[in-house]
Simulated scan of single mutants.
Amino acid sequence: MRILIAGASGTIGGHLVTQLVARGHEVVGTTRSAAKTGALRALGAEPVIVDALDPDSVADVVAKAEPEVIVHQLTALSGASTMRQVKRMASATNRLRTEGTDHLLAAARAVGVRRFVAQSNSLWMERSGGPVADENGRIEPNPPADAEAAVAALRHVEDAVTGITWADGIVLRYGCFYGPGTGLSAAPDAVMTEQIRKRKFPIVGSGRGVWSLVHITDAASATVAAIERGRTGIYHVADDDPAPVRDWLPYLARTLGAEPPRRVPAWLARRLAGKGAVDMMTRARGISTGKTKRELGWNPQYPSWRTGFTDGLS
Rank of each mutant, 00 (worst) to 15 (best):
A92P: 09
A92E: 15
A92W: 06
A92D: 14
T93Y: 11
T93W: 10
T93P: 01
N94T: 06
N94L: 00
N94W: 10
R95D: 15
R95T: 01
R95K: 14
R95L: 15
R97K: 14
R97D: 01
T98L: 05
T98P: 01
T98K: 06
E99K: 03
E99H: 04
G100H: 15
T101F: 07
D102S: 15
D102F: 12
H103T: 02
H103A: 01
H103R: 07
L104I: 04
L104K: 08
L104D: 02
L104R: 12
L105A: 11
L105P: 14
L105H: 10
A106S: 12
A106H: 13
A106N: 05
A106Y: 01
A107V: 09
A107W: 05
A108Y: 08
A108S: 15
R109H: 14
R109C: 01
A110T: 04
V111E: 07
V111G: 01
V111C: 07
V111F: 02
G112Y: 15
G112P: 13
V113R: 08
V113M: 04
V113D: 10
R114H: 15
R114A: 00
R114Q: 08
R115L: 08
R115F: 06
R115P: 14
R115T: 04
F116P: 13
F116Y: 15
F116L: 04
V117A: 00
V117R: 00
A118T: 04
Q119W: 10
Q119L: 12
S120R: 05
N121F: 09
N121T: 12
N121V: 09
N121Q: 09
S122L: 11
S122F: 08
S122N: 05
L123P: 00
L123W: 05
L123S: 06
L123R: 07
W124N: 06
W124T: 07
M125P: 00
M125Q: 06
M125H: 09
E126G: 06
R127T: 12
R127G: 03
R127Q: 08
R127Y: 00
